[in-house]
């Protein structure tokens, strides 16, 4: 760059005769954009650092084996909340996967660019960003109020409704990436559309579809608002029928974080660390699968 050793007259910087004001504006923009980017990254690491610092002290064997303590009792853990969260999240995914995959398949394979398919695609995109608390209210109105009681089923349905649009979207996108000649080859062998879809198209798009389901899992694992009025939360092991409240991690964190008992706060931090690390790992794994399949 700098030609200090050669005596030749060369412009010392690549800017040449660019006016000073233009140069300043350019430099300012570059500094601002870089600064903004690092601010966002800094916030991410700040949040993660906070979770590690405050949460790691709360991790012990009891955290994973004991049930959530009542008000004013010593010790305790969050075993019931962790298991409850697993149950609710997998219930949600179990409800959303068949519906989401089938709906995405219809959009990509049958509906294509028909008016109805475009409408469904549009509405699905809106559901994708609909406030999750409204989905909680909806499930309260259709499942909690009529049956007069909170239940894990209502919680699972609420999480499922949040997961469906995510799975619909990724399934359709992934199926659209499958080259048409593959389908034609299947059809040429005499296979009807359903067989072509299930044993050719789905198989070709498998990695991407699994990613969609993992992303949906990551999305609903930390959802709190829709569980507040559906699965509720309590300090006991839930009944196997899931009727009555089912303890779960996000609502436990919400209730324990600002409580006046020190062991509750400690458990809230430990729970936050567990849930965030699991979700971030899940998201990164999902991303890796996509990168690998490309």
């Amino acid at each position: 760059m700098t030609m200090t050793t050669t005596p030749r007259e060369l412009p010392h910087q690549p800017w040449g005769r660019v006016r000073q004001s233009r140069r300043t504006a350019d430099r300012l923009m570059k500094i601002t954009a870089t600064g903004f980017t690092f601010t966002a990254i800094f916030v991410l690491f700040w949040i993660l650092g906070m979770l590690v610092v405050k949460g790691i002290g709360g991790l012990s064997v009891a955290t994973f084996t004991a049930v959530t303590p009542g008000p004013g009792t010593e010790g305790g853990g969050i075993a019931n909340a962790i298991v409850g969260s697993f149950v609710l999240t997998f219930l949600g995914i179990a409800i959303a996967t068949p519906i989401g995959v089938l709906a995405g398949t219809w959009l990509a394979e049958y509906g294509r660019s028909s008016k109805l398919a475009n409408l469904i695609r549009f509405i699905n995109d809106i559901l994708l960003s609909a406030p999750s608390i409204l989905i909680g209210l909806f499930v309260y109105v259709i499942l909690v109020e009529p049956f007069r009681g909170y239940s894990g089923w209502a919680g699972g349905v609420a999480l499922g409704i949040i997961a469906i649009p995510v799975i619909v979207r990724t399934t359709e996108d992934m199926l659209n990436l499958v080259p048409g000649p593959l389908r034609e080859a299947g059809a040429a062998l005499g296979a009807p559309p359903s067989v072509v879809i299930t044993s050719v198209t789905w198989r070709a798009a498998k990695a991407g579809m699994v990613t969609g389901i993992l992303l949906a899992l990551a999305r609903i694992a930390g959802e709190t608002a829709p569980l507040l009025f559906t699965a509720l939360n309590n300090n006991f092991w839930f009944s196997p029928t899931l009727v009555g409240g089912v303890s779960n991690l996000p609502v436990t964190i919400y209730q324990f974080a600002s409580a006046p008992y020190e062991n509750w706060q400690q458990l809230a931090w430990a729970g936050s660390l567990i849930i965030t690390v699991s979700i971030l790992v899940l998201s990164i794994v999902a991303r890796r699968i996509v990168a690998g399949s490309k």
Binding site: I41, S272, T276
Partner: peptide, 18 residues
């Protein structure tokens, strides 16, 4: 880009705690 997208993966309640 991954770090920025992970900001979206952090659950809402964790933002509340922070």
């Amino acid at each position: 880009a991954t770090a920025v997208e992970l900001l979206a993966a952090v659950p809402s309640i964790i933002y509340g705690m922070w």
